[in-house]
Design a protein around this nucleic acid. Structure first.
Length: 450
RNA sequence: GGCGCCAUAGCCAAGUGGUAAGGCACGGGACUGCAACUCCCUGAUCAUCGGUUCGAAUCCGAUUGGCGCCUCCA
């Protein structure tokens, strides 16, 4: 298993901190609105990371937070004329529903900022006690000058950052690049702290939750590439300040989603909300579209690409369904067989995903399997050995779908269905096509194409 | 200005030193009573220029075009 580590910019062999266990954290959304399809990329990708690691036998703990305290939530509350709590509740609920529709395995923990306020405050106190943070008039800032290697994840040199840093509004800071841990405020929702009423800064919540749920050092930390700086950089800074160990062994960053070669943004008016997409397409379609490009590459959303993905999903579904019906109809007894050909496909699939989660190649293998199935299944006469082989194919297909997270429902034949099929075949044999077509229509109505 | 990424057939997309995987679309063919599903065949020298090498899409340099981050956007 090899993973490209954003921290070292190298593909490295994956060795978990503890044998067979993987602790993984992925930054979650700020619930001020419905999430958009760009947000879905890390969600889908890291779901596959987790699924594959589990397939390899690792015990994975997958944590992803919900940011339910933020300026944008306060603004949205103003717009919708309800409380921040209500905004957060509403969009959290929507988010959770959409995760299900995307077929994402439930996270082991989905911590909220509001449930961790005590931990956050305690964490900031510790930073102050250790000299890594300082309070100014109710605000608390992180003192980056105390760290030798600040900027190592994003490869930013301090002197260059300072040039580009904003000059306004940090007159209170020792260094313009010091970031906010606690912000004094008199508007919007606020909490009591040793520094007065206020809200935590964004960068502290993730570290706090990681430490709380997974410990001071984890295996994999994931997120969008645009979070590298400053968010992840600041997470590292805080964590190392307190724990004196690296926060994560492997940092993984997915590339951006573009819409028709353009950045998705409100100003361009091309934002596609996930819920709107899911009203039009199956969640599998988005998953297929996203997995068909390597996660570190930029991904361009076009209608054409979605159409192609949709077509592929239909192909997978029909083959899987047809195969299932075929096996139901013949109902062979005996075990499934894994031929050398199938074993080779399985190995190829594992090899693809073991190489920094090369999902495009894994999908390629899936397509080869589909072709293999379709070639065999088309024959009307099948020997028992061939049926056992088909069973092996179905097992492998199910494995591929499970690892990639496609949830495709298939039906099984009832005794009545089988009778209909026999009647249809008999009518055809007697060249009574009118009758055969009647039976066929009945069967097709139930989605049976045998 | 700094850091970083991308450019492969009409479209999507692997491949990162040994003579370009796979898929979609198009076209041709097969199967079928008809239809659907399916299967087979068919296409590119890898943005441009230069260099390294026996050999480069793959390494180095330059150029062009596009993008991200450096402001709490995944």
């Amino acid at each position: 298993m090899y993973i490209y580590n954003s921290l070292t910019n190298k593909k490295e062999e994956f060795v978990p901190l503890e044998p067979n266990k993987v602790k993984m954290y992925v930054c979650g959304p700020t619930v001020y609105n419905h999430i958009h399809i760009g947000n879905a990329r890390p969600i889908i990708f890291f779901d596959v990371v987790r699924r594959f690691l589990e397939y390899l036998g690792y015990q994975v703990v997958h944590v992803s937070n919900i940011t339910d305290v933020d300026d944008r939530i306060i603004e949205q509350a103003g717009r919708e004329h309800v409380s921040e709590t209500e905004i957060a509740r509403k969009y959290t609920e929507a988010y959770v529903t959409e995760l299900k529709r995307l077929g994402v395995k439930p996270y082991h923990h989905m911590p909220k900022v509001t449930d961790h306020m005590n931990h956050i405050i305690r964490f900031i106190e510790e930073l102050i006690a250790k000299g890594f943070a300082y309070e100014v008039e109710g605000d608390v800032y992180f003192r980056i000058s105390k760290l030798k290697d600040y900027g190592k994840l994003s490869n930013q040199a301090l002197e260059h950052l300072e040039v580009g840093a904003r000059i306004t509004d940090h007159d209170k800071k020792e260094n313009p690049l010091d970031f906010t841990l606690w912000k004094k405020t008199d508007k919007g929702i606020q909490w009591d702290s040793p520094w007065g009423q206020g809200r935590p800064g964004w960068h502290t919540e993730c570290v706090t939750m990681i430490h709380h749920h997974l410990g001071p050092i984890i295996d994999i930390h994931g997120g969008g590439s645009d979070l590298k700086f400053p968010h992840h950089e600041n997470e590292i800074a805080q964590s190392e300040a307190v724990a004196h160990t690296p926060l994560a062994k492997y940092w993984m960053h997915n590339g951006r989603l573009m819409i028709d070669e353009e950045k998705m943004s409100k100003s361009l008016g091309n934002v596609i909300l996930l819920k709107d997409f899911l009203n039009q397409y199956d969640g599998n379609v988005l998953r297929y579209f996203m997995l068909s490009t390597h996660y570190r590459q930029p991904l361009n959303y076009t209608d054409e690409a979605i159409r192609q993905a949709q077509k592929e999903i239909e192909k997978v579904t029909s083959a899987y369904q047809f195969l299932t019906h075929k096996l139901d109809f013949f109902d062979p007894d005996g075990n499934e067989t894994e031929t050398p050909e199938l074993k080779a496909l399985k190995d190829e699939f594992i090899a693809a995903l073991s190489d920094d989660f090369n999902t495009p190649n894994a999908i390629s293998t899936l397509q080869t399997l589909l072709k293999t199935i379709n070639r065999k299944i088309r024959r009307s006469q099948l020997t028992k050995a061939e049926l056992m082989e088909l069973r092996g194919m179905r097992r492998l297909l199910q494995t591929f779908l499970e690892v990639l997270g496609f949830s495709i429902a298939v039906t099984h034949l009832t005794e009545e269905d089988k009778t209909l099929i026999r009647l249809k075949e008999e009518a055809r044999k007697n060249k009574n096509y009118e009758l055969a077509d009647q039976y066929r229509a009945q069967l097709q109505k139930k989605g049976i194409y045998l």
